[in-house]
């Protein structure tokens, strides 16, 4: 379970989080939507402990992330998988080596076992025949799938997806969402997807939250939010310029 309680964060005087509150239940798939550049990725980095809030608390499985250091923080991070917007693949390693990396670094598994496990994961992602390729040789979709395979290989209990379909065509974007859904069914992790890919992402999540001006302004299931007829949500869905949400 993830709880964000009254989190504030500013960068050089620019307030990004302004008393943000959020609760995500265990095993839940959660979409975090909102205008670009308003702190959704920053929130993910707070949850995983790369950034710390100026004030407020973030709890992951009842542990206050802000108070963890050293081995405790390392142990907490082991619960996480993270899909970066641009993949963040190690460009000097092949697809196989990228996916094998966490196993080689963080487990005592023997090489044959690692090989088997990596190939199983690559098979899931449809990348088995591309195992020898370097990230520079991959298409955008393949890079995302490799990154997804690397995030999944440690079988995380919490997955954070930072704009998993940005920059991909609609078909490949849908295939990535399908992979995410398959992985969720297989591993049962708690997932947070930061995305602008609406309404498509609503098919794979149980709850949606909308962030604006450093706070959560809408939170609930898709049906609940639609019933409320929130104008900000309607504007975001339709992509209209006119409405309560303004250009940043």
């Amino acid at each position: 379970m993830i709880i964000v309680r009254d989190a504030y964060k500013s960068f050089n005087g620019n307030q990004v989080l302004k008393g943000l509150n959020l609760e995500i239940l265990e095993g839940e798939m959660f979409a975090l939507i909102g205008r670009s550049g308003l702190g959704k990725s920053v929130l993910l980095k707070h949850i995983i402990g790369i950034m710390k809030p100026d004030t407020g608390d973030i709890f992951v499985d009842e542990q206050n992330v802000g108070s963890l250091h050293g081995k405790q923080l390392e142990a907490m991070r082991r619960k996480f998988g993270y899909l970066f917007q641009e993949g963040a693949l190690f460009d000097s390693l092949t697809v196989f080596e990228n996916v094998a990396f966490p196993l080689r670094e963080k487990t005592a598994m023997k090489e044959p076992e690692i090989k088997d496990r990596v190939f199983v994961e690559l098979e899931h992602m449809g990348l088995k025949k591309d195992a020898h390729k370097y990230p520079a040789e991959l298409s955008g979709g393949m890079r995302k799938r490799t990154s997804l395979a690397r995030a999944m290989i440690m079988q995380p209990s919490i997955m954070l997806f930072d704009e998993p379909t940005t920059g991909l065509d609609p078909i490949i974007g849908q295939s990535i969402l399908n992979y995410i859904q398959l992985c969720h069914r297989r591993l049962g992790f708690t997932g947070i997807i930061v995305t602008h890919d609406v309404p498509r992402v609503f098919t794979i999540v149980q709850k949606i939250a909308m962030m604006d001006d450093g706070r959560i302004i809408i939170n609930g299931t898709y049906d609940e939010i639609v019933r409320q007829g929130n104008p900000a949500f309607q504007q975001f869905l339709s992509g209209s310029i006119d409405g309560p949400l303004h250009y940043v």
Partner: peptide, 22 residues
């Protein structure tokens, strides 16, 4: 530097691999 700007160092941290050590 390229590892830093392409978030590869962040990826190390998230995988609980200390970038100083690695």
């Amino acid at each position: 530097g390229i590892m830093r700007i392409t978030e590869q160092i962040d990826a190390l941290e998230i995988m609980a691999v200390n970038p100083y050590r690695y």
